[in-house]
Amino acid sequence: MSRIRHFSDSQAALFAHDEVPEDAGPEAKGQPSYIRDHRARLRERFLVGGADALPDYEMLELVLFRAIPRRDVKPLARELLEVFGDFNAVLSAPASRLAEVKGVGDAVICELKIIEAAAHRLAQSRVMKKPVLSSWAALLEYCQTSMAHRDIEQFRVLFLDRKNVLIADELQARGTVDHVPVYPREVVKRALELNATAMILVHNHPSGDPTPSEADIVVTEQIQAAAEALGIVIHDHLIIGKSSEISFRSEGLL
């Protein structure tokens, strides 16, 4: 333990051992020294340098350590990245697709989904109950975190009060890989129920290309017409792609 004495006792304990489930078999009780040493080095690099010090596959290894306590997880980390593309895509992948990868069981899926849920909650905490128009970068980050890697289209509505504070973020509809049914009357009805005076519409394009379709433009016009009739403002409609987004307001479409 001499090389990590500069950490606190609680941090150093991370390097000493991995947790072993009480019902683990004899093969899980002993951990080869090369695996133990590799994990210690990786954790040390993360604690010293943060996430920027590690490539995607090593970040993924850190997540997999707890799910697979006594086996080298590097091959599985690389396989997941090969299948899904990048770290974020692995976390966002549906459980059913993750389970198709050899070596991925319930424990791995659970760990990945815990990290995904934590990321969503953290991003949401930066915008919920806050004036979103003055926190636009945080809003875009939240939308990217929540929707960029979904494999089906989702349509969300962010409801705002008179001070443009985000009071609710609700999933209105789920669709297919290239279509989601949206009913303008239901969107406006929900705004009235929440006493919202403004809305931001958000949906994703699983293809990765955020370019609006003709259907996107038409449904936005329909929602805007229904909202304006009741004095509700549509601030924007955001389309979220894999690595970028398009704003209807910025594009002159709203």
Results as ranks from 00 to 15, higher is better:
S213Y: 12
H235P: 02
W136M: 14
V63T: 14
L194G: 00
R78F: 00
P94S: 09
E214M: 09
S247F: 05
R70W: 15
P210V: 03
H17K: 11
D72M: 04
P75W: 05
E228A: 12
E27L: 08
E193L: 08
P206Y: 06
V182F: 05
L160A: 01
K129N: 13
Y183M: 12
S2E: 15
R156Y: 15
I232H: 01
K189I: 00
E251I: 00
G50W: 03
R174N: 09
K189F: 08
Y34R: 04
E221A: 15
I68W: 07
V48M: 09
V73I: 02
A226Y: 07
F159R: 02
P26Q: 09
P21T: 03
H235D: 07
G105W: 02
N204I: 04
E61I: 07
A173S: 15
L112G: 02
R162Q: 11
I232F: 02
L166F: 07
V177P: 00
P212D: 10
D52P: 13
P181S: 09
Q222A: 15
A77T: 04
E79G: 06
Q144G: 09
Q154I: 03
H38W: 03
F87G: 12
I239K: 05
L80V: 05
D72P: 03
D9G: 13
R66G: 06
A67F: 08
E100C: 05
R97C: 00
F159T: 01
A148L: 00
P184S: 11
L139H: 09
L158M: 14
I200Q: 06
Q11S: 13
G241W: 11
A53V: 09
A168Q: 10
A118T: 11
V187T: 10
S2T: 14
A67C: 10
P69Y: 03
R185K: 15
D86R: 04
V157R: 01
S134I: 10
A215F: 06
L194S: 04
A24L: 02
R36T: 09
E79Y: 01
L140H: 10
E193M: 06
E111H: 09
M59G: 11
R70F: 15
S125T: 12
D52K: 15
W136I: 13
Y142L: 01
L112M: 11
L194T: 04
S96F: 04
S146P: 00
H17E: 14
R70G: 13
F46E: 07
R5E: 15
V83G: 07
L194Q: 03
R5N: 11
R43Y: 06
L80P: 04
D161G: 06
D9Y: 09
L81H: 06
V132M: 00
P181L: 03
E153Y: 01
I217H: 12
E82I: 01
L60V: 07
E221F: 04
H17M: 00
L76P: 03
L160Y: 02
G208N: 12
N204D: 08
M199E: 01
E170S: 13
D178V: 05
R41E: 08
A137R: 14
R162W: 01
V127Q: 10
H205R: 13
R97Y: 03
V90Q: 07
D106W: 07
H237K: 13
A138K: 10
I246R: 10
I246H: 01
A51R: 14
A40M: 07
F7Q: 05
